[in-house]
Amino acid sequence: MELLAARPLADRAVTFELATEVGAEAAARVGAAQARLSALLEAGELPGALELSRAFCAITLHYDPLEGRQAGLVARVRAALEDTEPAAATGGRLWRLPCLYEGEDLDDLSTRLGMARDEITARHAATEHLVHAIGFLPGLPFMGGLPDGFSVPRRETPRTRVPQGSVAIANGLTVIYPFESPGGWHILGRCPVPLFDAARDAPALLSAGDRVRFAPVDRPEFDRLAAAHAAGTADPETYAEAAT
């Protein structure tokens, strides 16, 4: 694939732009490039490289300027990508995450989208969401694949406090807020599963390339699950199914 641009973040990092539009095609390019660059990094073939982070259309490579030069890294990455083909995600896990569809913005969304609350939640729950990237907050998944008719920009006035676990949509994507945070997305519901736990070997539950389906739960079930996770008696891994 072609490297569209290498954009420097001074002497700390460089962003490799691989696509221009968010979607499954971009995810395939970024996913394949990430796999290739991770392998090179692991093999020590990117001098000075420290770690990679993945966004929708680009990968950012962080490096130590005392150990390597950006010009050399860009040349190696450009050459490596030339013989790397885009590939739809393979090996990602399928998650069935519980969701209490009683979000603060359902009525507002019903008006904006011209769709009944029940239809919004039913169609959202019937969708398989693809995790494009983890970012913004530790463990926060940006997921694509919203059904037609769900197109809505961010709220004009962001909330100063979006509750932990909020499942929210904007710009054709769904996110789950792993922590309370300011945020401008429209809240559909609440997921009781902790998405980031520093005590786990892999603190972030989800990875780019994973797929997520939301399983509607009622208030008593949500409360029961939230309490079980808070007490450490429920294992978030049980929501994952083998890839199909």
Binding site: R7, A10, R12, E21, F56, C57, T60, F142
Partner: peptide, 10 residues
């Protein structure tokens, strides 16, 4: 922009 990576100093 389409969200992309950040490093301190950006």
């Amino acid at each position: 922009i389409v969200s992309d990576g950040i490093a301190p100093g950006a």
